[in-house]
Amino acid sequence: MHRFANPTRFLRLAAAVLPFSAAVAALCLGAGLVWGLFFAPPDYQQGDTVRIMFIHVPSAMMAMGVYAGMAISSAIALIWRHAIADLIAKASAPIGATFTFICLLTGSLWGKPMWGTWWVWDARLTSMLIMLFIYLGYMALWQAFDDQTKAARAAAILALVGAINLPVIKFSVEWWNTLHQPASLITMEGPKIHESLLWPLLLMIVGFGAYYLTVLIFRVRAEIHQRRTRMLRMAQADRHNAMQAAD
């Protein structure tokens, strides 16, 4: 892990991983979408609206997964002062927030024909909404500091506090109200979804994961380059000042 605290080494690794993750994302998303939208049979109750699931479920999983990844890299960054872990946490937040938003949006579009309303204060919807707020708070905290090292540590503390709190929020909200159907993909007895719908869904989940990895690499790379440019500019300004002083 510490090998990759060196940005150059990380960039080399990222360059090696990027083609694969991009290819997996393109293939899985393409195949999953075509299969899910055109070839999978409509549900006997829900009809064609069940196809919203192929976007909704993977984005919900990614919304939570990205937060978990963010919390883990924040912990690594706090404990070992790992520079790249900070950048990974920072770069993950907007991606996770977008997944959360897509999940809420598709959920709302699915809720209208199924439950007859765009929004209900159901446990899962509410906890997703709270999660979006936590993502936004995290991103705002990054923005609030001028000093990037301070911002990184403050944001890491917040991400960890949020990670401890999220299960409590989820549990309390679930106790408060429930309309959404319980988990049907990951259960003790195995998936409860028919195979014809399960395979495109799994493809989409893998595709979403690979897409996240691809975008993450782009964002972290951009951040590293941005910091380098900034340092070069500052060095140049220093040289310029020194030359003027010498004149």
């Binding site: 936004l136 705002a140 949020g162 929020i169 309390s172 909200v173």
Partner: peptide, 10 residues
Amino acid sequence: TLIVTPLYIP
């Protein structure tokens, strides 16, 4: 406010 409010919900 943005940071603390979500944590107050439980």
